[in-house]
Write a protein that binds this DNA or RNA. Structure first.
Lengths: 185, 185
DNA sequence: GAATTCATGTAACTTGTTACATGATTTA
DNA sequence: TAAATCATGTAACAAGTTACATGAATTC
């Protein structure tokens, strides 16, 4: 349901093709909502059948044709209804934590390696969010100041989450490997 | 894959039935890994077919029979392999954030209501985690001190996450409703 | 007497993932 | 010349959700 609504949301901002919707997801809500190309096409087809969106074929001379989707009135109504509807419950799935709970017998160096890889990936993610804030692309795409402010807040949410994770890792390392496991960390 | 491994992990701690596995998920990793009853039975059946677990029927006199599952050697090996394997990537799906991004035109009071409901649910969750730490059930179930320490850390992760969310909400409210939307908040 | 808990499960459905196929254009 | 990008999609599969069915025992 959320995926569907997000597609409507993006098309409301700016009608576009399935292919580029994928890019938009990645470039803006990717940190808290992941999608695959197949999902997008499937949902787009369903929305089209239900007349929530209409497609216009645009000839790309040389390049492949694009099917540009736009909301219909019914589509706009569905989006508005979703915005006011109660939230679907947040259900985290955190593979590191899950593994962690069963890992008491894993030798310290191996556990440390798992934590380190996660830490490295967090730092990459955080740098990306920082870049997004600095790039200020947001301010050119947003339709008004309020919208821009909200997009900034959503990125700041991602940054705060990264920081919390990193702090937890630090604390966890201290608790589990009080002497350190190897030179350098 | 993670679900499967977690089932193996729980059965390794203590052989038990599908029904009570569900309870154990909820009572320990529920904050970062949600499951349904159907998923558990389905996976348990698959694991049985693959000889990773064996079931023993225990007659419950009066009460329904239970099928108590225990790991086989192959099951233990799969668990150990998973513990050392690279993590599946973390993919958040955060319905509030997603909605937030498209909600610039939602009237302040309605948006505030969405945020408030989320805030309330976070406070419930946080209280539950606190309770879990205070209850110290952990220390009786853990097989050793290291394991207990790791379980405590996993709950502390949940608490830290709640706190970060609550702080973000506060900040967001301040940014979006500088004068407040109604008495009391 | 009604609802909840214990305990098993099935069926149907929705959502998410992976792999593949096509074919032109641009970049390395 | 090989790889990446643009752009469409399909098929098969895996994972997650919802609703239902059964039936005894216990608690309200």
């Amino acid at each position: 349901m959320s995926l569907r609504a997000a597609i409507l949301g993006f098309l409301d901002l700016d009608p576009t093709s399935g292919y580029s919707l994928k890019q938009r997801f990645e470039g803006s809500v990717g940190s808290f909502w992941s999608v695959t190309q197949s999902q997008i096409y499937r949902e787009l087809h369903a929305l089209e059948r239900e007349k929530k969106v209409v497609a216009k074929r645009e000839a790309g001379d040389g390049a492949p044709d694009r099917k540009v989707y736009a909301l219909t009135k019914a589509g706009r109504e569905e989006l508005q209804a979703w915005l006011r509807a109660p939230l679907e419950p947040l259900q985290l799935r955190h593979p590191l934590l899950l593994k962690f709970v069963f890992a008491a017998d894993v030798p310290p160096e191996e556990l440390d390696a798992v934590l380190s890889r996660y830490e490295a990936s967090l730092e990459v993610t955080r740098a990306e969010y920082r870049g997004r804030l600095l790039a200020k692309e947001i301010f050119s795409l947003a339709r008004n100041k309020r919208e821009a402010a909200m997009w900034v807040l959503s990125i700041e949410h991602g940054l705060a989450w990264c920081d919390t994770e990193l702090e937890w890792l630090k604390k966890t390392r201290k608790a589990l490997f009080p002497g350190g496991t190897r030179a350098g960390r």
